[in-house]
């Protein structure tokens, strides 16, 4: 599904390389965890895959279902099935969450040549998914993420994921700012979306999240490169020994 080959990325504004030859291959149904210390390039990877401005790819490629992902607009990527759950979801004053979901879903359906959903169809579709994530009708009426608590923001991200039904979900530090109860709700929401046709990349600093979203593969990202890959047991090893071993390897 996703094949990243020798990806080099630098910040447009400064001449600093963040990703230095990252390679990763993700197949449908797989859940990959990417762990790494602060500054290793985790968020850069998620933003580059989602198409945010400000990054320059100097070498390598990222193919998504055989197409050049990096050549697409962010909205085209979304319509093709890429979804980034933000570490810090953006507040959009004046745009109601429900309206936002409807516009986004219909824009994606339109881009894929599918019929737009009628309002009653859409309402049923969202209410059902919102209930499972413990998201109230009131929250759906409020502007996107405005005044939401940390936990509400992350739940809202998972709701968007559940409504937009992407084939590749990238979760950037979804555990940050969550207490254990909120983490469980979010993880349950994510687990409910696991499917043989859907892949996930779970980016995290801490092993804790991976107790709830159990990955098939764990990769250690350090100084812009994947320096070690393994099964879920690798996460526990990291929790015990920290990232020091890997930082030394690249130094």
């Amino acid at each position: 599904m996703l094949k990243i080959e020798n990806l080099h990325v630098k910040l447009e504004d400064e001449n600093r390389e963040i990703l230095k030859g990252l390679s990763l291959s993700v197949k449908p149904g797989e859940v990959h965890a990417i762990m790494g210390p602060n500054g290793s390039g985790k968020s850069t990877l998620s933003y580059v895959l989602a198409g945010r401005d400000g990054y320059e790819v100097t070498e390598g490629e990222a193919m998504f279902n055989g197409e050049d992902l990096l050549a697409m607009d962010p909205n085209t990527r979304a319509a093709k099935g890429v979804f980034l759950a933000f570490q810090y979801p953006i507040e959009i004053p004046g745009v109601a969450t429900m309206q936002f979901l409807k516009v986004a879903l219909n824009a994606q359906r339109k881009a894929r040549g599918e019929k737009e959903l009628s309002i009653p169809e859409f309402m049923r579709f969202v209410k059902d998914r919102a209930a499972k994530l413990n998201i109230s009708q009131d929250m759906l009426k409020r502007p996107v993420n405005v005044g939401f608590s940390g936990g509400e923001k992350k739940r809202a991200e998972v709701l968007q994921m559940a409504v937009l039904e992407p084939s590749l979900c990238i979760l950037d530090e979804t555990d940050s700012g969550l207490d254990i109860d909120a983490l469980k709700v979010v993880a349950d929401g994510v687990n409910a979306l696991r499917s043989p046709v859907r892949a996930m990349i779970v980016i995290t600093h801490y092993q804790r999240l991976l107790d709830y979203i159990v990955p098939d593969f764990v990769h250690v990202l350090s100084a812009g490169k994947i320096v070690k890959s393994g099964g879920k047991e690798l996460a526990h090893e990291l929790e015990k020994n920290g990232y020091a071993d890997y930082a030394e390897k690249v130094a």
Partner: peptide, 23 residues
């Protein structure tokens, strides 16, 4: 940041801008 967030959800740039201006 607002514009990117909307686009990352599949809303084309022009439509995302209109939505933000209307908001």
């Amino acid at each position: 940041d607002h514009l990117f967030y909307l686009r990352s959800r599949g809303i084309p740039e022009a439509e995302a801008k209109s939505l933000l201006i209307a908001a």
